[in-house]
């Protein structure tokens, strides 16, 4: 993509998406990436793309990581009951991560941290009913988006809650994106719920936005083994369409 944009000076880095500076909590590694990029200000005399040769020391665990909690035990009751039970088991760990970090990324949907149960209840209801065109009715949460884009951010808030819960658990390196996605879609009620909501978007009235949100809900390769994106996606799309 840089070859098309032709920036004056670019440093290509071999790091995972979401980790452009390479290594978490490693200030020297991060600064060395920046020093190499800034070095192009001295050396480049024409548009230049240079390769960064140093791999990140902590790419995150992929093949060897598994969640210590056996969430598959939440196997009885309705989808909503099972999702709420799963959230309840993860809650102490999510609270601990927020205490340690003093911050959270939860809340883009409009829900507060203490409203995760209501968020999960509403998301499960959407999955069970397939209703993806009307905003969920709740007295508790002031939604920050309209449907169907709201679905994408509810999903992301719930995923953030799960990721923050995992982060506090004892053990070595954190899982990488692939391991987290495999865990969500293989071992959790949340994964089951996400796929059902995506199914609902597939069946929605002919709306490019609904089809697009389906692709934005689930990482590539995890929607029934393939892409959730429609074949053609054009931007910008009017959210009203």
């Amino acid at each position: 993509m840089s070859e098309a944009v032709v920036p004056p000076r670019a440093l290509w880095v071999p790091f995972d998406l979401g980790r452009p500076l390479g290594a978490i909590d490693d200030s020297e590694f991060q600064k060395n990436v920046m020093r190499t990029a800034f070095g192009l200000l001295d050396t480049a005399v024409e548009p230049t793309i240079e390769d960064y040769q140093i791999e990140a020391p902590d790419k995150g665990l992929s093949d060897t990581w598994s969640c210590p909690l056996n969430l598959t035990s939440e196997s009885s009751g309705s989808l909503g009951e099972r999702l709420l039970a799963e959230v309840a088991r993860l809650r102490p760990w999510a609270i601990e991560t927020r205490r340690q970090r003093g911050r959270t990324l939860f809340g883009i949907s409009g829900a507060r941290e203490d409203q995760v149960d209501e968020l999960a209840r509403q998301f499960a209801a959407i999955a069970e009913t397939g209703e993806v065109t009307s905003e969920p009715v709740t007295d508790e949460i002031s939604w920050a988006f309209e449907m169907p884009l709201l679905l994408r951010h509810i999903a992301d808030d719930l995923r953030t809650f799960y990721h923050e819960a995992i982060a506090a658990q004892p053990g070595g390196n954190a899982p990488d994106h692939d391991a987290l996605s495999r865990w969500i879609f293989s071992d959790t009620v949340l994964g089951e719920t996400l796929v059902l909501v995506a199914d609902g978007l597939t069946k929605a009235p002919d709306s490019p936005m609904a089809q697009l949100v389906r692709g934005l809900l689930i990482p590539e390769g995890h929607y029934r083994g393939g892409s959730a994106f429609p074949k053609e996606t054009k931007f910008p799309i009017d959210p009203a369409t």
Binding site: G18, S27, M34, G60, T160, H163, A167, A174, L216, P219
Partner: peptide
Amino acid sequence: LSHISANFDRSAFGQDPNIVFPIDR
């Protein structure tokens, strides 16, 4: 962060925001 894509690792930003926005660096 409210990026629309589901295809990158948000957990890294959650752990260390400098990995995306290196203002401390």
